[in-house]
Structure formats: C-alpha cells, structure tokens
Write a protein that binds this DNA or RNA. Sequence first.
DNA 1: GCAGTTTCGCTACTTGAGGTATCGATACCG
DNA 2: CGGTATCGATACCTCAAGTAGCGAAACTGC
Lengths: 182, 182
Amino acid sequence: MAPTRPPGRPRSSVDATVFAATLRTVDELGYTHATVDRIAAAAGVAKTTIYRRWPSKGALITACLVDAFGPLPLESGSRAELMSSAIRWGAAKISEPGIGAAFAGVFTDAINDPALREILSTQLQDPYRLALQEALGEPETRVLFLIDVVIGTLLHRMGMTGEPMVDADVDALVEMVVRVLP
Amino acid sequence: MAPTRPPGRPRSSVDATVFAATLRTVDELGYTHATVDRIAAAAGVAKTTIYRRWPSKGALITACLVDAFGPLPLESGSRAELMSSAIRWGAAKISEPGIGAAFAGVFTDAINDPALREILSTQLQDPYRLALQEALGEPETRVLFLIDVVIGTLLHRMGMTGEPMVDADVDALVEMVVRVLP
DNA sequence: GCAGTTTCGCTACTTGAGGTATCGATACCG
DNA sequence: CGGTATCGATACCTCAAGTAGCGAAACTGC
C-alpha cells in the first residue's frame, strides 16, 4: 500500500517551527504565560492552525516534548551503567531551555484532565518506562518507583523551583538510585 | 502591652471551617476544579470573606497546608532515625485526603507567581528546611537536595499521578535516603 | 443610645486564557 | 474545472481569579 495522499490542501510543514516557538515561549514566559495565542504569534501561524493539529495546549506541549526528547539512548552495559546514563541523559534534557517548565506544566495540567493524561501516558511516559523495564529486567512496580524518584526529583528541582541542578546533585542522585539496584 | 482589640466588627472565627472545606473540595474535585467560589460555598461563607483574609487562592491553600501539617515532629535519635521518621511523617501527611493535590497544585501555581512563591517559601518550606537542617547538622545544599528527592518523589507519585504510595515504596525511599547520609 | 469603624453576605463586574465557529482565500487531486 | 481540506483572520463562548460597591450587622468608646 503506497501511502496515498488524502484529498484537499496538504498541511504546511510547520510542526518543527511551532515546536521551536513553543519551547522558546515557555522558556521566556513560563508555562502559564506561554499562551496558545502567544505561541502561535511566535511561530507566525494562526491559532486555529495549532488547534487543527493538536487538540489542546497540553497535547501540543506533549508532542513538543516527545519531539525534543527523542528515543531513550540505551548503550549496552551493566544495569548500573544503563541506569546511570539514562538519569544523566534525562537530567541534561530537562535542563535545556523550556523543557523543564514545559514538562512540569503539562504534568500539572494532566492532573485534572483525563484526556490529557491519556495522551501524556501513551505518547511520553509509557515508551520510556517500557524501554527501561526491558533494558533493566526489573519488575514494573520497581521501575515505576525508580522513575518516580528520578523524574520527581528533577521536576521538583528544575520545573517547580526553577533552581538548576548542579553536577554534584546529579551525581548524588545517580549514586542513590544505582545503589538500590539488586 | 495587652493585645488591644482593633475597632470595628471582629472577624468571625471561620478559618478552621474554611480550611476543612478547602481540603474537602480539593479532595473531591481536584485542585483546578476546586474554585474559590466552590470552596466558599462549601464553607458557607462569602467569596469576599475569603479574599479579605488570604490574598489569593494559592495563599489560602498554603495557609491550609501549614495548618494541616503542623510542626515537624522531631524525636531524638540518630540522624538515620530522624530522617526516617521525617520521611514517614511526610508521606503519611501527603496521603491524607486533599493534601497531596493541594500541595502539588500550589507548587505549580507558584512557578509563575513570584508573590505566591514568597508566601510558599517563608510560610511552608523554610520552617521545615531549617528544622531539618538543624536536626541533621548537614549543610544547606545537602538538606535541600534530600528534601527535593523526598518531596519530589512523593509529589510526583501522589500529587501528579494520583497513584497511592504503598508501604514498600516508602520503605525503599527511606532506605535510599538514609544510605547516603554520612 | 449613638457615632465610628470594620466585617459580613450579596451581586455585579473586569480580565485573561483555553477553545470554538465562521468565512473567504488558497493549494492540491482527479 | 470541481471537490476537498487547510490556511489566516476575526469574532465569539466559557470559566475562573480577583475586584468594586452596597446595605446590614457587630463591636468599641463616648
């Protein structure tokens, strides 16, 4: 089956532009003040175009994060090495401009929005959880707990309080988590 | 100096009623849907009365949390015992109805609201941080990191995802943190 | 009792943000 | 050229935080 093109005017390829504008706006103004109107203006696009592609602000941010993170890099090695590199990779990503604030904001929006929660789970959380679960060979509850510790710490420090996480803190986090691996 | 009463009609003593109504409403509807109108209605009080006592919804929630948590119980013992009991106390408190959601919600509100951040810091965070710092005899950066790990994990698990934290998870968290104490 | 002051509940309002509806113009297919 | 779906632009709806103004009520001091 060749991917037959649907009829009608094709979508202009502005996804990457919108993602960039989103992260830039969130970085400059914070999640709340980064309104969809402002993001659209920053991307040089109409607000309706954004809502034609993503059903809500939270869905846009989620897609933006999925795009920004990309697949979890899993080099081979011991479980401690795997876990260590995954934590350092996540910490570095969350430190990039706008990412931490966007991450924390969309999580919060999702608390009282079941539809967004579904999107966030299936598109962002589940893939990484499953990849890590398979790589570590640990049971699901254990992996979920470790992810909560790492993501919770990173988000609380950088998403919530806005304070940067220094290398020593990342080292300490890695050591804490790696030590409890069997 | 006797505390001379100011002129005018004295405030009705409804703070406790409002706090209870706040936590109940947040527990039932979640942070976002727990609007000030609804909280006021649940407390049997006018919305203006609430805004006459607390400058914003976030400030109300903060006061509510300060009231709900109370002072950090610090029994004497080793640093490991102190830390362990503090974590278990925090985990138990955050599990009470409405507390976790209120905590996560006010933190998020504070991200883009400097005035609320100031309130949250001075009234809720600083007291516990200072108490723990003094009890443990650890440097500030170290205590801040450990608090981020514990609060981050608890908030991410219970405030954000809404999933309960089972005893095994609390045990694992305690062990992780206690192990890295010098 | 009465003037002064402050809180009370009530209602109406302002502001800002997420999201929707409509419309003429445009780009692609057959 | 007809059919279809996207484009930008504008206007609109809804809901929630927070404010303003009002008459009534509760307290103090004279």
